[in-house]
């Protein structure tokens, strides 16, 4: 064990030290050049390593994946668009796509609603309790998806009727006089039980951004509405929310991007069984269980295409900021 730890520390030192040494050496080399060349080359020395890893570990593999999506399982024979046709004709993959759409409709909206509710209601409490309640909602952000799946798997734990229930939810159900439910196997609503885990984890993020936006709504717009005799409800929906709209859009799209790639919760809690399959889990299953590399590539290219609108918006917003 001690040797392992020493090896690990040496490996870490090599990894970290190597990264820093690279810059120091490159810089020393460039500084020996004539000043004109130093000026020209130095920026590329500074950005070089970052550009290199991004090209090597993101761009180049992405291009290879797109290329591979037109080949068969082992990447040997060209099959045209066959893998893309399979996205819609293969029942399991198609179900994964439909389920992902369900996630994309429900979860971002739920996160916005919960985040907005906490931000607004906590705003009405004393500073101390506002801080405490927000911290509590934010805390799950620290927990891994796998950890949260364990937490909620235990909440959903199911025992047949008559035996003591050890899952909190089924205990509540039996206290209310109903029969215990196998939450994760109930095809009618089990994916919503998984979505709850995601919302529980991510609502804190929505709350922080929405709360900051709420604090930035100018007070005089609210007071003017109050003077005009608007009710608190009218003030909230017609004065406050519209002024927070751009933040709501940002929160929604950010959660949306996360939801499109949802994997851990489904992998750990049901592994896609009982009709809960999603795209990212199907992708891993196609690679490691079925060794269908071409089809897996098509699945993930499809996923990437779905993110392109957000990518375009991000770039446009960046360009707009820069031109200010």
């Amino acid at each position: 064990m001690a040797i392992k730890i020493i090896n690990a520390i040496l490996a870490m030192a090599a990894g970290v030290g190597g990264g820093i040494a690279l810059f120091v050496i490159l810089n020393a080399v460039v500084e020996r050049l004539p000043i004109r060349w130093e000026r020209r080359i130095k920026p590329y020395v500074f950005i070089g390593p970052a550009i290199f890893v991004v090209l090597a570990f993101l761009v180049y593999p992405a291009v290879l994946t797109i290329y591979g999506s037109f080949f068969d399982a082992r990447g040997e024979n060209f099959v045209g668009g066959e893998n893309y046709v399979a996205l819609f004709t293969d029942d399991a993959i198609f179900r994964a796509i439909v389920n992902n759409l369900k996630w994309m409709v429900v979860v971002p909206a739920a996160c916005v609603v919960v985040g907005l509710a906490v931000a607004t209601l906590a705003d009405r409490l004393s500073a101390k309790w506002e801080s405490v309640s927000k911290s509590i909602i934010f805390l799950p952000m620290a927990i891994s998806f796998v950890g949260a799946s364990t937490i909620w798997g235990f909440v959903y734990a199911f025992r047949p009727e008559g035996r003591p229930q050890i899952g909190l939810l089924n205990q509540i159900v039996t206290w209310l006089g109903a029969s215990p439910v196998a939450w994760l196997q109930a095809r009618l609503f089990n994916d919503y039980m998984l979505m709850i885990v995601f919302v529980w984890l991510q609502a804190g993020f929505a709350m922080v951004l929405l709360s900051a936006a709420l604090k930035n709504v100018p007070m005089d717009t609210i007071e003017a509405a109050r003077v005009d005799g608007a009710s608190e409800r009218q003030i909230f929906f017609r004065v406050v929310v519209p002024q927070m709209f751009s933040t709501i859009v940002v929160v929604f799209t950010t959660v949306l991007i996360g939801v499109m790639k949802v994997f851990d919760i489904v992998r750990v809690m049901t592994n896609g069984n009982f009709d809960t399959e999603v795209i990212a889990n199907r992708f891993i299953t196609e690679i490691f269980t079925f060794r269908q590399f071409g089809r897996a590539a098509a699945i993930v290219v499809f996923l990437m295409i779905a993110t392109i609108p957000v990518m375009v918006v991000n770039i446009r917003r960046f360009r707009a900021q820069e031109s200010l």
Partner: peptide
């Protein structure tokens, strides 16, 4: 960009 695009 989903990092899954790079896995294979």
């Amino acid at each position: 960009v989903p990092t899954q695009i790079t896995f294979i």
